[in-house]
């Protein structure tokens, strides 16, 4: 049975700090800007500006954009494990209803096992579904100008509990081998 991302986060209250807050009632969106930090349970999102919207059923949607030269950042603890999911992208879309996070433009997603990076994925667009713990990475679509962008993933195997001791200095022993059969 798969390991789920932290379930408890779904119904945790969302808290946002930022330099300024503006409510755009035309688009029914509240726009936080300036060193914005959003926390919801174990979820942490940082960015230069976050637009938060709520749909009639009460699901929240966030659109995070990073400052120039500094990408938007996302972090969430995995359910019941000492592991975290971290991700960056030029913009991040958080969809509360589908409980998915999308990292767009030079997207990167890492899974940390304690302090070390276990897996790492990079690509043009990364979508992470919280419910099924599934991620999908897409390269930039093939255009006339450029071929399809490539995505990369790095998976590290779980360290075996028994780690073999490092070999002692190699001991050289004389060879009893006949020279190559050179005529």
């Amino acid at each position: 049975e798969g390991i789920r991302a932290e379930k408890a986060d779904r119904n945790k209250p969302m808290n946002v700090e930022s330099d300024a807050l503006r409510y755009d009632d035309l688009k029914q969106v509240s726009v936080f800007s300036g060193n914005v930090v959003l926390t919801k349970g174990s979820i942490l999102i940082r960015g230069a500006q976050i637009e938060v919207r709520q749909d009639p059923e009460g699901y929240q949607y966030g659109l995070v954009t990073g400052a120039p030269g500094k990408q938007a950042f996302f972090r969430q603890k995995r359910d019941g494990l000492d592991e975290f999911i971290e991700g960056e992208g030029d913009t991040i879309e958080y969809d509360g209803k589908a409980d998915t996070v999308r990292f767009i433009q030079k997207a990167q997603m890492r899974r940390l096992r304690g302090a070390t990076v276990a897996d790492e994925v990079t690509g043009a667009v990364i979508m992470y579904e919280n419910l099924t713990d599934r991620f999908t990475v897409d390269g930039t679509p093939k255009t006339a100008a450029a071929p399809a962008g490539r995505v990369r993933a790095m998976l590290t195997p779980k360290a075996d509990p028994v780690t073999t001791p490092p070999a002692a200095g190699t001991v050289l022993k004389p060879t009893t081998q006949i020279e190559k059969a050179v005529p």
Binding site: G2, G123, F135, D138, V151, A153, P157, D160
Partner: peptide
């Protein structure tokens, strides 16, 4: 044993450790 596996392609989907 310790070395990581690298995967590359146009699209990757999956679940960690699965």
């Amino acid at each position: 044993d310790a070395a990581p596996v690298f995967l590359m392609g146009e699209q990757i989907t999956g679940r960690p450790d699965l």
